[in-house]
């Protein structure tokens, strides 16, 4: 498989940051009260992750080993500040609902973890795709958790009232939201449930002797990444 696509597959499924690596649990548990928040948080993190992976990979020969952590933090923090201002300017409602968790992207383990274990040791293009894969994996995880919590906890999907709510005062029957799911304990329950579910699916697939279906080959959009196959750049250090 092509190196770039392999990175994306790795981030989305094999080493999904939410369900497999269990990284970045703080935003995962805190902001996923709705699917919209999950998408917003996931995409903001993806943008920061791609940009910081790119810059750190470019600077990997420049940054001295002994001060790499402060250097990573400076790079990540700059991008987070940019993203924060953009969100505040263009999607103020999302900015308000994500709140403190946007500046906290700086200390998100996924970003530092990828910088440390991948971007600082691998070439630029692969690092960018690693950022995309990990970021999308995080987005998918957060959106899935947010979706389940939103449906059970308030009967909505992306803010749209899917299940009509019951109104005791008006004697109208309907869905009674299980509020605990949009409160903190619900985050743990849903995260655990979804993790168990994906483990079950993966185990079943492994048992049947089938590998989990892999994205095969490279579409037309990937023509540009012909250069990043294993021949040109060494692809190592993936499991650190």
């Amino acid at each position: 498989m092509n190196g770039c696509m392999e990175r994306i597959y790795n981030g989305l499924i094999k080493e999904n940051p939410t369900f497999v690596l269990m990284l970045g649990m703080c935003p995962t548990l805190a902001v996923t009260t709705s699917a919209t928040n999950g998408v917003g948080m996931g995409l903001s993190t993806t943008v920061v992750l791609v940009l910081s992976n790119m810059l750190i990979s470019m600077l990997r020969k420049v940054i001295p080993d002994s001060v790499r952590m402060p250097a990573f933090i400076v790079v990540v923090a700059s991008f987070v500040t940019i993203v924060q201002f953009l969100l505040q300017g263009f999607v103020p409602s999302l900015y308000a609902s994500l709140g403190i968790y946007i500046p906290l992207i700086v200390v998100n383990c996924i970003i530092l973890g990828r910088a440390e274990s991948y971007a600082s040791k691998n070439p630029v293009l692969l690092s960018i795709f690693d950022g995309i894969g990990m970021g999308l994996g995080f987005t998918v995880g957060l959106t899935a958790i947010g979706l389940v919590r939103e449906i059970i906890g308030s009967g909505k999907v992306f803010g749209f009232q899917l299940l009509p709510l019951a109104d005791v005062a008006a004697g109208k029957s309907g869905y009674v939201p299980v509020t605990i799911f949009i409160l903190a304990p619900g985050a743990f329950l849903v995260l655990a449930g979804l993790t168990a579910l994906q483990n079950k699916v993966k185990n079943n697939a492994a048992k049947k002797g089938k590998k989990v279906r892999e994205a095969s080959g490279c579409g037309e959009g990937c023509a540009s990444c012909g250069g990043c196959s294993g021949k040109v750049f060494p692809t190592g250090n993936e499991e650190e």
Partner: peptide, 8 residues
């Protein structure tokens, strides 16, 4: 407690 939090 699950019910108490959900349906106060």
């Amino acid at each position: 407690c699950f019910l108490l939090i959900s349906f106060t």
